[in-house]
């Protein structure tokens, strides 16, 4: 039976970010990407892990520089958990050295965005993931 893509579900996106400006920026980029979504914001690592226990998102937008548990530790937790492993993670960082540290872990990530992130760059990255996500969903349908 043919199923309309938009009827399947909207994407649940977990944004792990503590900077109010970057949160607003991500919200705007999501609006621009036309990706129908439910955006959940976790402002630190602990809140992100709690949220993941509650609900598994379709995508994680992850800042590396966070208060308390940092983004690298979150990525390790996600990719070492069989229930969370499949969730695509898009890393957002303003620090080259933090990005290199994450790269050395050799964990699968969907992409790296270097801050300052333009609205266009983020919406393009999200658009790419959206296509990938919807393709998967259509196949399942």
């Amino acid at each position: 039976m043919a199923t309309s893509i938009h009827q399947i579900k909207s994407a649940e996106i977990l944004l792990v970010e503590d900077n109010p400006g970057d949160i607003l920026f991500a919200k705007k980029a999501l609006e621009k990407s036309k990706l129908s979504n439910l955006l959940i914001i976790a402002e630190d690592g602990e809140a992100a892990l709690k949220q993941l226990q509650k609900s598994i998102p379709d995508l994680i937008l992850l800042d590396l520089h966070l208060p308390g548990i940092n983004g690298q530790e979150i990525l390790r937790a996600v990719k070492n958990n069989p229930q969370w492993y499949h969730v695509p993670v898009l890393i957002m960082t303003g620090s080259q050295s933090e990005m290199e540290a994450v790269r050395q872990d050799n964990l699968p990530v969907s992409g790296y965005l270097i801050k300052p992130i333009s609205l266009e760059k983020l919406s393009v990255a999200l658009g790419g993931l959206q296509n990938f996500y919807l393709t998967l969903t259509v196949k399942e349908g």
Binding site: D18, P20, E43, A47, P67, G68
Partner: peptide, 16 residues
């Protein structure tokens, strides 16, 4: 966090 908490600009909690 008991060592890193002494680093410059290291925070353990959100601004809120």
């Amino acid at each position: 966090f008991r060592e890193t908490v002494f680093q410059i600009f290291r925070r353990l909690h959100t601004e809120n």
